[in-house]
Computed example of a mutant assay.
Amino acid sequence: MMRVAPGLWRRWAVVAIAVVSSTMLADARSAQTIQPAGVTLAFAQTMSWLDKSHFAVGRWDGVISIFRIPHADESGPVVTEAMALPSGRGVEMVAAVDDSTIASSDTADSIVIWHRKTDPASNRGRSFEISERLSYDAKYGTANSGLAATVSGRDYLVTGHENGFVLYWSKMPDGAFKLAKVIDDKSPAAPANPWGLRNVRGLAFWRNLILTGSEDGDIAALSVPDGGEVFRVRYNDKAQRGINNISVLGDLLLVANCAVGLTDKNVWLFDLSSGKPVLSDAENLAVDLTKSQVFDFDAVLAEGESGPIFFSSTEEGLLWEGDVSRGRLIVTGVTKSSPEGGSVIAVGPDDDLIAVATYAIRLFKTK
């Protein structure tokens, strides 16, 4: 029989008791006893390019950050400026009007216009400051989307709102904006979601028309400046969720949504060449096909080296890339873009870069 020296036995006993005590103490503690007070960056909700080198990102902490693409000796996008919404609410919409003017959401009854003047001495832009507050009836709700459009020589800011309305703001000679038209863009049919949501989250400019994509499930085309409805279709007759975003390239229309069930799709391609959307293809971009639903947060079209391409961001934290060929969506790549959650995507002015924002900001080359 093996014998253990008394001194060694005592040391083993002490170690054993310490291990047992530590294990019991660990079991008695909660998984996290030091409670966090905050995080470095809030989730990104919206993004818009200002020019070929700068883009704006709006986050749920109420901050709009301006980023510059990196120089050769830099590893990633560089933040050059940050502004906070006066209301302190999360940023739901940011839209570049031009390289010196940004429109953003603020409260349920107002939009903020940010402007920076050019310093004549250095020919460089100064900091963005609030130049105007656009007020409207609170029944329209917070702005969820926005874009700048020029029709028949007149400049407009178009905004989509949470209660199903679209607003046209006409740009005056002095640079100020005046509310020119309010369009009730709600579907006459029941919303394609169980919560009755009507948010107009998608806006695109096509053939001098404004295309809208709503959480009620409808794609609509509105004329400018009168706001007349040119067409309206439900993106999917069996849809159980609404539209999260839309993107247009030529006569191609891409729609992002949440797929529910194994047979549903979360990205849809339409052909607009006939003057209205005709379904061309649809895909369910997901790795884990056992999930009851897969949320497509954003999807965009861009011009690639040999034709149209698309990018899409899903709740699995993945960025998908693919070709659009002969009316089909062909996935060519997928990469991790975030530890969790979907990202917002914006295509650069030359279609050569896309910016992807969740918590971190990433740039990807398209050509």
Rank of each mutant, 00 (worst) to 15 (best):
E162Y: 02
A138N: 03
F177E: 11
V182W: 00
L211H: 09
D184T: 03
D185A: 15
W114K: 10
T212E: 00
S127P: 02
S152Q: 11
G141T: 03
L167C: 11
I102N: 12
F177I: 12
L157D: 09
F128M: 04
L197I: 10
G146E: 07
Y136E: 11
A138P: 02
W114V: 07
D119N: 15
S187Y: 00
R207T: 04
S131C: 01
A192M: 13
N208R: 08
I210C: 11
P194A: 11
T101S: 04
E162I: 02
T142D: 13
F205W: 07
S110Y: 00
T159A: 10
A149Q: 10
H161V: 09
T150W: 01
T142R: 14
T142M: 14
I113G: 03
T212D: 00
G160S: 06
D155I: 07
A148G: 11
D184P: 02
V200Y: 00
G141P: 03
V112M: 11
W195R: 15
L157I: 13
Y168H: 14
D119G: 07
R154A: 14
V158I: 15
V166M: 02
D137E: 12
S145W: 01
K181G: 10
V182I: 11
A149E: 11
D119R: 10
M172T: 15
S152E: 13
E129Q: 13
P188V: 15
G175Q: 09
A190M: 13
N123D: 15
I210L: 13
T150I: 05
N123C: 06
L197D: 12
F165D: 11
A204V: 09
I102F: 10
R126H: 06
R207Y: 01
G153N: 06
W195E: 15
L167D: 09
P191T: 08
S152V: 02
R207E: 14
I111D: 07
A143F: 01
F165Q: 03
L179K: 08
A204C: 09
N144M: 13
S105Y: 02
I113T: 04
L157H: 10
I130S: 05
S104D: 06
P188A: 14
V166P: 01
T159R: 01
K139H: 14
S110C: 04
I130H: 03
E162G: 10
T150C: 01
T212Q: 00
Y168S: 11
W114L: 10
G164F: 01
A108D: 15
S187Q: 04
A148C: 06
K186V: 15
D137C: 04
N193A: 07
A192F: 00
T142Y: 04
A149I: 12
G164A: 09
D106I: 05
A149C: 09
R201P: 02
R126G: 15
K171Y: 03
L211A: 10
A148K: 08
E129D: 14
N208T: 04
L209Y: 02
W114G: 13
P173C: 11
I183Q: 00
